[in-house]
Structures are given as C-alpha cells and as structure tokens.
Design a binder for these strands. Structure first.
Length: 975
RNA sequence: GCCUCGAUGGCGGAAUUGGUAGACGCGCUGGAUUCAAAAUCCAGUUCUUUCGGGAGUGUGGGUUCGAUUCCCACUCGAGGUACCA
C-alpha cells in the first residue's frame, strides 16, 4: 500500500467541497445548532489580483500559513471564517483589452477560473460560499454606496468624528460657519446664517462640497497626453512614461479626492492598539508625517497686499532667518521678481518645469536656486530678508515656501554657503562655522530678543504665543499625509454613482445602485481626451425614470451626463473584509447581526508592499464606517503578519561572445562570455543543464555547441531514461559525455516570467502533491523573511510524508495496534504537541515541519504502530498536510472529517526527566558531557564534577577560580 | 541621505528568558538492497589538525563565569521612502 497522493488529494478535495466542510456559519442568521456556542475566529488573506500568468509558488506562501492557522483554530473549538475572493478590477486586464479588444470581464473571468483551480489543488480550507469579486456589480454596489456615505458626511473636529452633512447644514442655518471646526478645504469664506439662507441652491452645494469627505478638487497630476491618462510617480521613468516613453506634463485636473487627512491623527493613534509589524507601523507613521510647528506670515517689501506663509517646525529659530526660498511654481514668483532678476528667474522656472518631481528630489547633491531680487520683511525685526527660489522646495508640500535658517538646518546651511548668504548664529555656545547645529533638544537660543537663554521647548511655547499675540501666524500641527485622489481615467474600475447637473455632482439614490459599467467600443481615452467611459453612448442619467439612458437625451434638466472617471484600485479592497461577513446581503452592506458576531479580523496575512496603500486607506474607511455606526470597531484587524517574498533561483548559461557556443560555469574565466537566462525547468538539483531541452527551447540554440565542465564537447547522443525526479526524460547519458556535464550559474532574483525562474504550484502538486507543497513552502524558512526557492529540496518533505504513511502500514496493509503506548512513544508525541502549539502561536511554521520529521523519525525507530500515538499524530499534522491526515483519519475508522476534531491535549507529565546530560565547560568552552540526576544539589554536583578525571585532565593541576553550576542547564569551570 | 529588515556549513535554515552552535532537510561521500534503476535503509559530512587538540555565527571593540543572543562603532546585502521645511 503505497502513499498515493494523487488519489488521496483528489478524493478529499471533492469531499470537502461536497460537504461544505469549511463553511463558516453566521449563527444569528443560520440557526445552525452548536455553532453559536463557539467563539468566532476570523482569518483573512489579502485577496489576489487574478493576473493572466496564474499563481507561482510565491503567492500561496501566506495562504498556506493562514490556512494552517485557520485549521488549527478549528481544532481548538473556534467557529473559523476563512474567506477568499478576488481583487478583480485592475490595469492588466484593461491593457489586454486595449491590445486585443477582448472585454476585460471575459479575461478576468478566465483568470479567476485558473486561480480557483490552482487554489483548490493546494487544499485550502476557504469558505468559498463567501467569495467576493470587486468587479462584480453586486459587490461594487456597496463600494458605490460607501462612496455616497462619504459624500454625505463631513468631519467635525469638535466631536472628532464624521457626521452626516445635515448636521453641518443645521449649523450653517443657525449660526453660519464662523465657529465650525471641520476638516475642509483651505480657503473658505466666513458667512453668517443670514448669508447662508440667501445663497442659491448651487452656491450652497458649492460650499458644502468643500466640507464633504469625498469632494471634487483641482489636483496637479502627471498627465501623459499620448496615453491619455494620469500616471503614478512610479510609472514615470526619467521624466517619460515607463510604457512607450511618452512625454509627461504636470496638469491640473478636477478629480474626486478622499479627505483622509481628517483622520490623520486617529490613524496615527490607532497604531498603538493593533498588533501589526513594527516596520509597517513605522512606515505608516512616517507616511502620515505629523510635525508640530507654526504657520508664520512674512510680508513682502513693496507689496502691501501680499504675504508669504510658511510652515516651520522650528519657529524658535525665527531670529536666525536670513533668506526665504519659494518653490519655482509659487504664485508670487512672477509678481515679485525684480526686472534685473527676471531673465534668470524665468530661465530657472522653465528649467524646473522640465524636471519631474522625482528627478528634483533624487538630485541631492546639486544646490541650485535664483535670487528673485525681492525681499520679505522679518515679522519681528522688520529687517529685509532675501527671497530666493529653489527647486528643492516643492509646491505641493506645505505652503510651497520655506523660511531658511542656515544655522539650524543642513540644507539651508548648504544653500547659504553656496550662494554666500549670511548665516546668523542664534544658538548659545555653539560653533556653526563648519556645519549647522540641528540638535534641537539640546539647543539654547541666543541673539533672539525675548527668546534669549531659553531651551528648545520653552522657546517653542514662547514664540508661538508671541506669533499668535502679534497676529501674523499660529501654532499648527502639520501632516505630510495628502488627501487621496480617487479618480482614475480608466475603464476597468468601479463607476461613480454620480451625475452632473450644472457642473455640480449629484449622488444617485441607493435604491438605484449598482450603476453598472457601460459597454464601450474602445477602451482607450476618447480623441478629445476624455476618459474611456467617454466612449459610451448610453451613459446619461434620467432623473425622472432613474435609469441610465442614451447620451442623445441629455438636456441637463432631466437627463444629465454621468461621471466619466472610475474609482482607483484600492476602492474595492478598502472594506472587503466587512463584506465577507455577509456577502450575499442585497439590502445592507453588512447586517448588524453579522458584523456584531464577526466584529473584526483576528489574523490578517499579506505582503508588506501594501503598507502605505491598501493598509492605510482601509483603516481610514473603517474609521469612517465606525463613526457612522456601521461597524463596531475602528480598527479592523487585530493582528497582521507580513509574509516575505519568495525569490527565484535563476539559472544562467554562458555564451561565448560572437559564437553559438556555450561553456560550462567553471570555464567562463577562460572566455569572454555573455550570461543568458535558461529556464529553471531545464536544470536539475545539481545545477546540471539538460542540454537537449535547452537546445530545443529556441531555434537559435538548436545547433549550439556545449562545452562541459571538464572541457569536453558534449556529444548529442540521446538516450531514454529517468530525470532527477523520476520523470521520463530524453537525456544524455553520462557514458556518452565521458562523464562531463554542463553546469549552470545560479543567482537569486525576484521570481519573474522574464527571468525564466518561475515555478508553478501546479507542477509541484502534480509531481509531489499538495501536502508536500504545503510542507515545503513552510519548511523553507521563517514566514516573514524573504527566501529563495529551490525545488530540489522538496524531496525531503515528500520522503517524510511517505515515512509518516508507513507508520500506519503493517505487511502492506493498513493496521494499527491497540496496545498501550510506551513512555518513550508518549514522550515523542507530547513533545511534538507542545512544540507545534508553541510554533503556531509564534507563526514559526518552519520549525513545526522539523518537529514532525523528528517525531516520525523517532516513532519509526521505535517501530511504533499504536493507535494511541498515531491517531493524535494525524490530528496535529492536519493543519499542515490536511489530505494525508484526512485519509489516515478515515482509515483509522472515523466517518467524519478530521478538521473539527479536538486538538490533542499536551500532558507535561510525559516529559518529566530524572537526569540530565550536563555539558561541562571550561572558560565557556564545552569540553565533555556527564549524565547526572536532576535532584542533586549544587554542592553535590560540584563535588562530583571536581572529582571527575576529565576535569582534572582539563585543569592540568590548576585550581579553578570559580565553578558555576546552573542546575538543569550547565556547568562552567573558570580558571 | 533617511527608515526598516537581514548576514550562522556547499545550500535552506535551527538554537523560545544570555547557558552544549550547526537541530531538521537538501546536496555530497561511502555502503546495503537490486540483473539494473527508481524507491528504501545504514554510516559520515563546519573548518582545520602533527588526531592531543585548535578555531569558528559579516568586521572591530565592550559587558559577562559564559554572547549567534545584550551594548558601541563599522562593512555588506535586501526592501521601502525621499531636498517634507
């Protein structure tokens, strides 16, 4: 009776699907007995984007880990929800559509089918009845609904939460907006209740838009006219688009934005109460970028009505200001520049416009700038301060202007030195002739009027008080975080539930959702530069019938144009974890009962690349939904783990330059060679190349000559035989080569199709089975670290599974005995239980696999065949290798799934030892070992050890200075 | 530049509060079984050695009876971020 993984795995995968073994019940809704008594546990994976390439072995790593955890929790008596779905809107499907005309929905559907097949083959315990797809109208209906909720809300800083826009309107009607503290647009005019009531409906709406949590704003974007779209920073390389190399310009566009900045402080504070990796928290903290300081206005000499506002974190150094720097794009630049400087300034502004923001920021070494000829007036001293422009100041950050204090800031110092600007020292007892003094905590202010002699903290308080008293500024907490642009000029995304009347956005009522993506002829932007939805001919809203109608009917009275942008990639993923709780609900986003029961995610596993994208936006939406009373917690995931990347081990062959000849790795120093990626599937575990497979790979290599490691020309004689893993292959026999082989070079790189180092899970499942794949992925190393993939090692876990199987087999028949287990057997079992439970608690799955191997090795050595040992063993291994466990469990005579059986209880009594093999060290170096009873006193141990002949041998007559004995641990003799 | 993580045999890695460095697996070497192979099993495998031993966890210091583990300085690698005022 062989371990036939193909048969076993197919059988149990079908069984689980048929019996809905992993369906998680919502007790309140289902009334399923027994479920409601169990505590809930919610294990979540970051759902995948279903790309055309399918899964490679890197993808399931986190899924396997979370699956082990979910399965373990079922054994521990929890009602576990472990859902999966697809983040199925996205660019690749759209690009494929542009190239081929194939509708993205069709491509996406096909890709999902591939993913599903691959996921099923690995034996995950997903509850597929809860599947969501972000591109499914029944799902994005709720994305649109949340958008409407955001539109209908404003952020009240007084109550410190989002409130319905109606509460704001009531305040306006009662007392105007003078006392409203809200997260809102920067420049809002103050009005009274009287004025508000006299505003037209349009004027009112325009004002309200400045307060809403999602709002239209003019945003500067990277516009690529050739592609007809906006590009993200990372899609621009050297100032041109990554795709196609087209020109990119900065352009202002009216777009939807999300007022995430309203939540900056709460997003920061919330980090303290969630168990997420510190590096991830650090990067969110940095991204939010809280800084305390002051806004200060500087008057411009000769321009009575203009002022330059700056934000500074060091208002205490204001007496050290010797110049100001404006971003070249600053609106005052053209106005205040003197005729003398005009030419230079204009040239500089022009040069800056050509540089991308990225380029400007990457170039740290060159100091550049131009004097405008104008002067600002120091608010305290009234002295004239030069106004410069410099491209290190960014228009998009803060006010686009900096008050420069060279003695206290390295960059200002370098700038001042470079252009010979005065450097005023305002620090007591500090030499600034060589560099700026930036240690603010240890600074004492001097040369600064009323601030003289004050340390940093006192000086800050005093100066902010003075600034506010004199009325040219105020203390302010600034955040680096920007409001998030929420419009995309794409086709394959969620349509907005928005139409425009007289240029003002109107929300479509909830009952008419979803607004379904229209059909278009082409997926490209229109010729006049409108987004792809501009191609739709039926894309107008009839306000009488509340239906989408033909554009021909637009009259801007009853029929109005619909929004042409779509939502960004992160829209659908920002709250999907809540939707899993109640995925089929068509009346509500999530029912009260469901969300009260499931509450939040107990364990979330995914990649760290989402640190400041998805993981920040989703926290923002959760806080908003919490404010609205829709969800009961304002942080949605208690615990988060980042799985590390699996890198590929690329293989290289070496072509002699100018020839169609390849030399083996050991010979490359004798030739001028060019390394070429070879597909890793042509290489075996000993880095030997299957030369024939490589030759047949591409026509250009058909006639290539290969020189082996020993310098022999590899003969092309073919022979049938077995490959390294037992598969049938046509290969070169060693005799034919005179024992010579072609050895490839290896290098660890990111796993990628273009590097030919991708390994698919399907291949592995086919050759070794899903249980082997699962064990091997865990065995590779710590979950959170990145690690290279090398398929050759998989034979180790495969042998282990065969060895485990054989424990249950006697004379080729399945058989276990009912004999009482021995102390040794019980010890093996219980130390395994203990270690595996500790490992799961620590997410240390790699060490669990080792522990299983040790247990099976020991039980094999003991020839253990006893039910009392082997039955619990099948349970504890189930989370890791569920198929073989289920098979063994049923063979042991059970008729229901092993997945909900109680985990064996660890009994410490089986591990109690009476003696210990003490390591005896001399000066910290272990020299020999001695077996001693554990109940000896320190004195007794010392007497025994000092009398020992090996001790005397080591000491060679010396008298030890000290003998350290830690009972149960070590003996160390010093001297 | 800054932030974060990491560096242990030929390779992946283990060593849970400072206490036997190299568990477990791959690979490799030798052997058993076999007509042969696959599979399986057994033994060995950090380096070095005059076979007594000696050295050894990126480098250099420090704390300690004792350091892969703690502290300081540095080198290299990976990821992120970026003249952030």
């Amino acid at each position: 009776m062989e371990y036939n993984f193909r048969e076993i795995e197919a059988k149990w995968q079908q069984y689980w699907a048929k019996n809905q073994t992993f369906k998680a019940e919502n007790p309140a809704l289902s009334g399923v007995e027994g479920v409601s008594d169990k505590p809930k546990f919610y294990v979540l994976d970051m759902f995948p984007y279903p790309s055309g390439a399918g899964l490679h072995v890197g993808h399931p790593l986190g899924y396997i880990a979370s699956d082990i955890y979910a399965r373990y929790k079922r054994h521990k008596g929890f009602n576990v929800m472990h859902p999966q779905g697809y983040d199925s809107f996205g660019l690749p499907a759209e690009q494929y559509a542009i190239q081929t005309g194939q509708h993205p929905a069709i491509t996406t559907e096909a890709n999902i089918a591939t993913y599903r097949k691959q996921l099923d083959e690995i034996g995950f315990s997903f509850d597929w009845s809860r599947e969501v797809r972000t591109s499914d109208p029944t799902y994005y209906k709720w994305t649109q609904w949340i958008f409407i909720q955001l539109f209908n809300s404003w952020y009240n800083k007084t109550s410190d939460k989002a409130e319905d826009i109606s509460t704001l309107i009531s305040i306006f009607e009662a007392e105007g907006n003078a006392n409203v503290k809200a997260a809102c647009d920067d420049e809002i005019e103050i009005f009274t209740a009287e004025t508000w009531k006299n505003y037209s409906e349009e004027e009112k709406q325009t004002i309200l838009l400045k307060y809403r949590l999602t709002f239209l704003s003019e945003t500067e974007v990277n516009w690529c006219p050739a592609l007809g779209t906006v590009l993200a920073n990372d899609e621009i390389v050297n100032g041109v688009s990554e795709r196609g190399g087209h020109t990119v310009v900065r352009k202002k566009m009216k777009q939807w934005s999300m007022r995430i900045t309203a939540y900056a402080q709460r997003l920061l504070d919330g980090l303290a109460k969630i168990d997420w990796p510190q590096p991830l928290k650090d990067s969110q903290t940095y991204w939010i970028g809280r800084s305390e300081g002051a806004m200060v206005d500087f008057k411009v000499d000769g321009f009575e009505n203009d002022k330059i506002s700056v934000f500074t974190t060091r208002p205490d150094t204001i007496f050290g200001v010797s110049f100001m720097t404006l971003a070249p794009e600053h609106e005052l630049v053209s106005k205040i520049t003197t005729p003398d400087q005009k030419e230079a300034v204009e040239a500089y502004v022009k040069a800056t416009a050509k540089r991308s923001e990225l380029e400007r920021m990457a170039d740290v070494k060159t100091i550049s700038g131009v004097f405008t000829g104008a002067y600002a007036l120091h608010p305290f001293t009234g002295e004239k301060v030069q106004i410069w422009i410099g491209d290190y100041v960014l228009a998009g950050y803060g006010t686009g202007a900096v008050m420069a204090v060279p003695c206290g800031d390295e960059r200002d110092y370098a700038f001042a030195k470079h252009f010979g600007i005065e450097i005023i020292n305002i620090f007591e007892g500090v030499d600034i002739s060589e560099e700026a003094f930036t240690d603010k905590e240890n600074s004492v202010i001097a040369n600064s009027d009323f601030l003289n002699g004050l340390p940093y903290k006192k000086a800050m308080k005093t100066i902010i008080y003075e600034i506010e008293k004199r009325g040219f500024g105020y203390g302010k907490i600034n955040y680096r975080l920007r409001d998030a642009v929420f419009s995309r000029q794409r086709y394959w995304g969620e349509p907005f539930p928005v139409y425009y009347k007289n240029g003002l956005p109107q929300m479509i009522d909830k009952q008419y959702l979803p607004i379904v993506l229209p059909e278009v002829e082409k997926y490209l932007p229109t010729e006049d530069g409108k987004p792809p939805l501009g191609n739709a001919t039926t894309w107008a809203w009839d306000t009488n019938t509340n239906t989408i109608v033909s554009n021909d009917l637009i009259d801007n009275v009853t029929v109005c144009p619909l929004e042409l942008n779509t939502m960004p990639g992160w829209a659908g993923s920002s709250s999907y974890f809540n939707r899993y709780m109640d995925p089929q609900n068509s009346e509500e986003f999530v029912s009260k009962e469901a969300v009260e029961y499931w509450q939040d995610v107990d364990l979330y596993i995914g990649g760290s690349e989402h640190a400041t994208g998805h993981l920040l936006y989703s926290r923002f939406w959760q806080k908003f939904l919490f404010d609205k009373g829709i969800v009961p917690t304002d942080e949605y995931a208690k615990k988060l783990i980042n799985q590390g990347m699996i890198t590929g081990t690329s293989a290289f062959v070496y072509r002699v330059e100018g020839e169609n000849k390849f030399v083996s790795k050991g010979l490359i120093k004798d030739y001028k060679v060019q390394p070429i990626h070879a597909d890793v599937s042509f290489v075996n575990g000993s880095d030997e190349l299957d030369v024939e497979a490589f030759k047949n790979w591409r026509e250009e290599y058909n006639d290539a000559i290969f020189i082996g490691e020993n310098g022999k020309v590899l003969s092309p004689t073919l022979s049938k035989g077995k490959g390294a893993n037992g598969e049938n292959k046509v290969l070169l026999l060693e005799e034919d080569l005179g024992g010579d082989k072609y050895i490839v070079g290896r290098e660890v790189e990111k796993m990628s199709k273009s590097k030919y180092n991708v390994v698919n899970p399907d291949q592995i499942c086919e050759e070794y089975g899903a249980d082997s794949l699962r064990l091997f992925e865990m065995f590779l190393g710590p979950l959170e670290q990145s690690k290279p993939w090398k398929t050759s090692g998989i034979s180790g876990v495969y042998s282990f599974l065969k060895k485990l199987w054989r424990l249950y087999i006697v004379n080729d028949e399945f058989a276990v005995s009912n004999e009482e287990p021995s102390a040794e057997e019980l010890k093996t079992l219980h130390k395994t239980i203990k270690k595996v439970e500790e490992d799961i608690a620590n997410f240390s799955f790699n060490t669990s696999v080792s522990t299983f191997m040790i247990a099976v090795n020991e039980l094999t050595a003991l020839k253990c065949n006893k039910r009392a040992i082997l039955e619990p063993l099948a349970i504890i291994i189930e989370p890791y290798a569920p198929h073989i466990a289920e098979e063994l469990w049923h063979k042991l005579g059970h008729s229901t799934s092993v997945s909900n059986v109680d985990f064996p209880i660890f009994e410490p009594k089986y591990l109690v030892e009476s003696s210990k093999e003490y390591p005896v060290s001399f000066n910290g170096k272990m020299r020999f070992k001695i077996e001693l009873p554990l109940d000896l006193s320190v004195k007794q141990i010392e007497d025994i050890i000092m009398a020992h002949e090996k001790t005397q041998e080591q000491l060679q007559g010396r008298t030890p200075k000290k003998v350290i004995i830690v009972p149960g641990k070590i003996i160390n003799i010093v001297g």
